[in-house]
């Protein structure tokens, strides 16, 4: 492609549709951040396609002045796979919630990650079913009281990051709905990655699960209870940057810096290692025993699915000068005979 870099503004990416999320929903902040990030990518908006499934988050495409497809529950990875394979030049984002992506669409999620299609997945995790009005989700966890778990949920939670890493995800990151700059930077980094990028966005549902992430990533708690993963850097956190994560045997532990413990004793993040062991270890950190890790857990290069497919088509067309052979050649393969 010989396109010139296009400079868009957030307004260019705002459709004429009225946004219908509940007032105060975390989705508003995500929409704003994604629009800002996409406007800065230098690509024309007609090459942007946003695909979603079903759920509150899945209304996202209607609010984007791009091409958009609001498909059916759980299936956005499959729809997006068809879009990207049909036209690898398109830039494709998937938007879905924890129910859409991890429950009904869990199978498609792991397989798009395994194939490494060059798309970005924005997984809005609010740990609840919002659109169906308040049932527990696959990320809610044990004991959660909801309309469908009046005595407490007996369903253990999925961890989206661990699941994505387990499925072979080549770019796996976490950000937070209200962390504007962080969210924009993460979305931009995901787009720059060639392959499937999954971003878990911790998102507040103001109606059915208000404040679920506040103790870890809320305005007051963020510095103390979350930790930003930076490739090659030691794992330091805390308002006073006085705490860190150390590997003890096969387990992580929180340590105070000083008193004989220096940054050299801390674990260093390695997002680029061929093995996903370090990212997996990071993903095991859960609040309140650990700070919540944010940023990029893993980023490695692998061939993308659609490019591998294009190479096969290219190879198959070598004998026909890169074009489709005449249909007569197809029809006349094998044994033929003439009746006169």
């Amino acid at each position: 492609m010989s396109e010139e870099a296009v400079q868009l503004t957030r307004k260019d990416l705002t459709s004429d549709q009225e946004v219908r999320w509940c007032p105060g929903c975390g989705d508003y902040a995500i929409l704003k951040g994604v629009q800002n990030a996409l406007a800065g990518l230098g690509i024309p908006r007609e090459q942007m396609v946003v695909v979603s499934g079903i759920g509150c988050a899945a209304r996202f495409p209607y609010y984007m002045e791009t091409y958009g497809f609001h498909s059916i529950h759980g299936r956005s990875p499959a729809v997006a796979t068809g879009v990207k394979m049909a036209n690898p030049d398109l830039h494709v984002w998937l938007v879905g919630g924890d129910g859409d992506m991890m429950s009904i669409g869990g199978n498609h999620l792991i397989h798009i990650l395994r194939r490494n299609l060059d798309v970005t997945i924005l997984l809005f995790n609010n740990r609840i079913y919002g659109l169906t009005k308040g049932q527990f989700s696959p990320t809610s966890g044990l004991g959660v009281l909801t309309k469908s778990s009046p005595m407490g949920s007996i369903d253990p939670a999925f961890d989206p990051i661990g699941l994505a890493l387990g499925a072979g995800g080549t770019f796996v990151a976490r950000t937070v709905d209200l962390w504007g700059k962080h969210l924009e930077a993460t979305v931009a980094a995901a787009h720059a990655h060639k392959g499937t990028a999954l971003i878990e966005i911790l998102q507040n549902c103001i109606i059915f699960n208000d404040g679920t992430f506040d103790p870890a990533v809320g305005k007051k708690a963020r510095d103390e209870n979350s930790i930003e993963l930076v490739h090659g850097e030691p794992l330091v956190f805390g308002t006073d940057r006085n705490k860190g994560i150390r590997l003890n045997g096969t387990r992580l532990e929180v340590v105070e810096l000083g008193d004989g413990v220096s940054e050299d004793d801390l674990m260093r993040h390695d997002a680029h290692d061929d093995s996903a062991i370090v990212p997996h270890l990071m993903a095991t950190m859960q609040y309140p025993d650990f700070p919540v890790p944010t940023g990029i857990f893993r980023q490695v290069d692998r061939p993308t699915y659609e490019q591998s497919m294009e190479e096969q088509v290219h190879m198959a067309q070598l004998r026909s000068e890169g074009k489709k052979p005449d249909l007569g050649a197809l029809f006349n393969q094998g044994d033929t005979w003439v009746v006169s």
Partner: peptide, 22 residues
């Protein structure tokens, strides 16, 4: 282009996506 999909639903949804893209 063929996709041996992960299941029947993915198969049809990918076909819809491909048609959407032309």
């Amino acid at each position: 282009r063929t996709l041996q999909a992960e299941d029947e639903i993915a198969a049809v949804c990918s076909a819809i996506g491909a048609s959407y893209a032309g």
